[in-house]
Computed example of a mutant assay.
Amino acid sequence: MTDQAGHDATTTRYGVADDLLLLLFQPASGTVSGENTLFYVLAGAVLTDLALEDAVAVDDRGARGTVVAAAGDTAPDDELLLPMWEYLADKSRGVQTALAAIGPRLREPVLDRLVARGDLRRERGRVLGFIPTETIELGDTGRREQLVAAVRATLVDGAEPTARTAALAALLSASGALPTLHREIPWGSAVATRAKELERGDFGADAAAQAVTRTMTAVVVNAVIAAGVVSGR
C-alpha cells in the first residue's frame, strides 16, 4: 500500500507492535526478550493501536467478561492491523481469544517491517553449507534510542506521557521484559510502581482524552497476565 506521496505504508507507519518489538530487541545479544510468549504481547499491541485509531470498542459484560469488537465502517490501511480488525468485525470476541487467534502470525511481518525501514538489520547465511542461520543487529535510524528515551522519561523522570507512550510502556511492563532493559531504563521500586499504574490505564492528565486507549491497555494487560505470559507475578 502507498500513501498520497507514493511512500510504502508498510514501512513508513510506526505501529505500536513495531515499536514494542524494537524495544524488546536486545542489541547486545541480537535477540528479542520474551520470544516464547511474544505473540500475546504483539497482539495486545495491535489491539492498542486499533484503540488509538478509534477502530475498536470495549464492552464490559460483567460476569460474562470483557469483549472487544471492531468500530467504524472503514477497515484500517495498515496490513498489521487489518487481520485483527476483520476478525473483530465478524463478531465480538473475548480478549484472550483475539490475542491467541491473531498473535502467532505477527512476529515475522513486524520484524520484516523493522528491517525494511532500517531499524534492524538482518543477515542470513548457512553453517556447514546447509544449516540456515540468521543474525539480527540494530540499525542506524535511531528509532530505538528515541523510544527508550520516551519510556525512560515516563518511568524514571516522571514525565507526563502521551497516550501512545503510556500504552507502550504498559505493554513493555506486561511482557515481563522491563527489567532486562535495566542498563537503559534503570529498574527499581519507583519504576515498577509507575509501570503498574500504566498497566491499569493510569496515564495521567495529558492523556485523559484517550479513554478508549486507557481502557484497552488495562484490558489487554489483564488478558496477557491471565494467559500466563509472565510467571510469578
Rank of each mutant, 00 (worst) to 15 (best):
G232P: 01
S33T: 09
R107T: 13
W85N: 09
Q210K: 07
L128W: 12
S175D: 06
R122M: 14
R61W: 07
D90P: 00
L47Q: 08
L138K: 01
E145M: 04
A75M: 10
G176L: 01
R105Y: 13
A89I: 02
Q26I: 12
R121A: 13
L138H: 03
V219Y: 03
T12Y: 08
D140S: 13
D112P: 00
E160Y: 02
L138T: 03
A63L: 11
A69K: 14
V16Y: 01
T31M: 13
L80M: 05
I225N: 07
S33I: 10
G6I: 02
G118N: 03
M84L: 11
V156E: 03
E108Q: 14
A71I: 01
T193A: 14
I102V: 15
A163L: 04
T12W: 07
A101Y: 06
R144G: 01
L168P: 01
P186F: 06
V41C: 04
L114Q: 06
G158P: 13
V46E: 08
L81E: 09
V32Q: 03
R64A: 15
G65I: 05
E199P: 02
R122I: 08
A51C: 09
F130E: 08
G34T: 09
P109N: 02
L20F: 10
L99V: 10
V46H: 04
A75L: 08
T180G: 05
L111D: 05
D73T: 15
A100Y: 05
G176I: 01
T66A: 10
L24G: 08
A209P: 00
